[in-house]
Amino acid sequence: MLGLTNKVGKFYVYTSTLISAFVVFLIFIILLINSWEAISTIGLDLISLSWNPAKGEFGIISMLYGTFVVTFIALVIAIPLGTFTAIFTSEILASKYRFVVKSTLELLAGIPSIIYGLIGIAFLSIWFQDLFDLQSGRTLFTAGILLSVMILPTIITLTDDAFHNIPEKYRETAKGLGLYNSEIIKEVLVPIAKADIKSAILLAFGRALGETMAVMLVVGSIDRLPSPVLNWLSPGQTITSKLGREIAETSFRSVHFSAMIFMGLLLFSIVLFLTILAQNSSKKTERLYE
């Protein structure tokens, strides 16, 4: 009797683990199978400029371009802003305020992305429309700015943790040698926290690439490259906004559907790669301390 419950318990535990472990594979396989049609029938033409299902053209370049432009704008703003803010919260702010600041940031990181989208529609896009005198304020640039705000709390808390985990003795020793605060941060703390900061940035990068709702609402959703190509104040499309807008209206198993899933597969692979990179990066720091 006892032996039996022991066996049932073991079976339960192993089954749960198998389920948890294979969800990722399952998602990958489903995406791969369903994008196969596009890969085999369209092939290299997927890497072209024109997306027009009616004519059987499924070029994803403008979506890729939009994805990277939006993410690039977000990171370029959020990384310096977030890192400097984290330096403040960890190294300059008195530690008695830390709990309040951390909780506020966590709260902000928890605001659902649809609400960021609403704020983007109701304020940001209208401001930019007036500010830059545009036909529509829904542009790649708007999406990038909104996205930078969304990933800011993530970057701040993770980077703040990275700094905060450094033992106090490094700071005191460097102070004892007559270094200024900025020198201590630059030459002692940043090198030690580097791997963790890198992993924070990689995670934020992944989040930005995969963010859907907010981007979808403000990016403009037009499937072509801006002209000139660097005119980011024009509407565009990202992989996520494309999927969000169109997948539900596409018939299952069509080439069109398959081409959409192919973009999903691409996004999935890139984000997975970044996540694994981030995880490996933060593991290395443990060895650094002692």
Binding site: K169, Y170, E172, T173, A174, K175, G176, L177, G178, Y180
Partner: peptide, 17 residues
């Protein structure tokens, strides 16, 4: 900072970078 270059300090536990 400049004061601490004139008055140096060594701590209980060695701390190398």
């Amino acid at each position: 900072a400049s004061l601490r270059t004139q008055i140096g300090m060594v701590f209980q536990k060695p701390c190398v970078f």
